[in-house]
């Protein structure tokens, strides 16, 4: 029986709240980044690329690579590996540049 990261460090987190991801409600532990909340649900991709439409998610985990961009509360290009998840956050898979609404 393998242990979990939380068990390793003896974590006793405060009560979980929920965030929304592409219409699904996900439990979020306080203090986790949005990317961590998604990983905890075994979700690894929340963006598609501009050219090839390929799925991407967190890669560097420290805010350097910008692969983990998502649209959060309507604002595109948010680095989910840095952004703390907050109650009621609405995260949507970002397609390409995430700015299609601006096109003329």
């Amino acid at each position: 029986m393998r242990r979990t990261p939380a068990e390793l460090v003896g974590a006793q987190p405060a009560a979980a709240y929920t965030i929304e991801f592409d219409g699904r409600e996900l439990p979020a532990l306080p203090g986790r980044s949005i990317a961590a909340v998604l990983w905890a649900q075994d979700i690894l991709a929340w963006r598609t690329t501009r050219v090839g439409g390929r799925p991407r998610g967190a890669f560097c985990g420290i805010g350097v690579c910008f692969d983990c961009l998502a649209t959060v509360n309507g604002r595109p290009n948010q680095r989910t590996c840095l952004l703390p998840a907050r109650p009621g956050d609405v995260v949507t898979t970002q397609e390409g540049h995430g700015r299609a609404d601006l096109a003329v």
């Binding site: 501009r50 290009n77 390409g96 540049h97 700015r99 299609a100 601006l102 096109a103 003329v104």
Partner: peptide, 9 residues
Amino acid sequence: TEPLPRIVR
């Protein structure tokens, strides 16, 4: 800027 759709023609 960041990559954008065509916003300036």
